[in-house]
């Protein structure tokens, strides 16, 4: 019984995750459209290393895709031990803030659904 409940909760979280993914896609497209259309150039790009605590391969793929779809970040590379991911960020005003945002929002969601 507890197992069945767990599966149902997982399915609902997965459906919620699809909608979250689409919302992030729309938001990031609007952000980048605004950046392209306005002529001023305020970008501070940089490449940041973020530690990853996920074990499952499917979870890592979903994490990389979700990073690419959030506004202003793009996953670039990963080390062979699958413990660090390298992210290209468009607005890097504060490195620690960016890393915290990735760890607390995105990785927590992936951890709840896929592991």
């Amino acid at each position: 019984m507890k197992k069945l409940l767990d599966i149902i909760v997982r399915i609902f979280r997965f459906i919620f995750f699809i909608f979250y993914y689409l919302k992030e896609l729309v938001l990031s497209s609007l952000f980048i459209a605004y950046d392209i259309i306005t002529p001023k150039d305020l970008m501070k790009p940089g490449i940041v290393e973020v530690p990853v605590d996920l074990k499952n391969d499917t979870a890592i793929i979903a994490f990389a895709n979700l990073i690419s779809m959030t506004p202003g970040s793009l996953s670039m590379d990963m080390n062979p031990e699958k413990t660090k991911i390298y992210i290209h960020a468009m607005y890097l005003h504060d490195k620690q803030e960016f890393v915290d945002k990735i760890k607390n929002e995105l990785e927590k969601k992936i951890h709840q659904i896929f592991e």
């Binding site: 940089g46 490449i47 940041v48």
Partner: peptide, 25 residues
């Protein structure tokens, strides 16, 4: 895009101006 960015960084393509940091270097 992940694959192309990885390949471009491995082949040392020139980066644009005002980069803050590059920890993959």
């Amino acid at each position: 895009s992940h694959m192309i960015a990885k390949a471009a960084h491995k082949t040392n393509m020139p980066k644009g101006p005002n980069y803050v940091m590059d920890e993959l270097e």
